[in-house]
Simulated assay, not measured.
Amino acid sequence: MNDPSIEQLLQQFGLSDKEIDTYLAILEQGEAKASVIADEADVSKRHVYSVAETLADRGFVEVNDHVVPTTIRAHPPESVVDTLADGLEKMEPALESRFSQAAPRSESFEVVKSRVTVLKRVAELLGRAEGEVMLAIPHRLLDDIATELRDAIERDVLVVLLVTGADPDDDLALDGLASVARVWGQPTPTILTVDRELGLVAPPEMLSRANNAAQAIVFAQEQLGPVIVGSFLGNYFPMATERYATEPEPLPTTYHDFRHAVLQAALHIRTGSAVHARVTGRPLHGEDGPAELDGVVVDVRQSLLEPTNSSFPVENTLIIETDHGTYNAGGQGAFVEDFEASTVELKLV
Rank of each mutant, 00 (worst) to 15 (best):
H268L: 03
D294S: 12
H285K: 13
I269K: 12
R301E: 15
V300A: 05
G289T: 06
A277I: 02
Q302E: 15
G295T: 08
V300N: 04
Q302S: 08
E287A: 14
V279T: 06
L267M: 05
A265R: 03
A265E: 09
A277T: 04
R278F: 07
V300E: 07
I269G: 02
E306V: 12
H268K: 03
H268C: 03
A274S: 15
V275A: 08
Q302A: 04
R270G: 13
I269P: 01
E287G: 14
A265V: 04
G281P: 11
V275F: 07
Q302W: 07
H276Q: 13
R282I: 01
H268P: 04
V300I: 06
L267T: 01
R270T: 03
V298C: 03
T280Y: 05
V279R: 04
R301Y: 15
V300C: 03
G272Q: 10
Q302Y: 07
A274N: 13
G289P: 09
P290C: 07
L284F: 10
P283V: 04
S303E: 11
A266R: 15
P290N: 09
R301P: 01
G295F: 11
E292P: 01
G295Q: 09
L304I: 09
S303F: 04
G295M: 08
E306G: 00
H276G: 01
V300L: 02
L305N: 03
E306T: 14
P283R: 05
Q302D: 11
E292W: 01
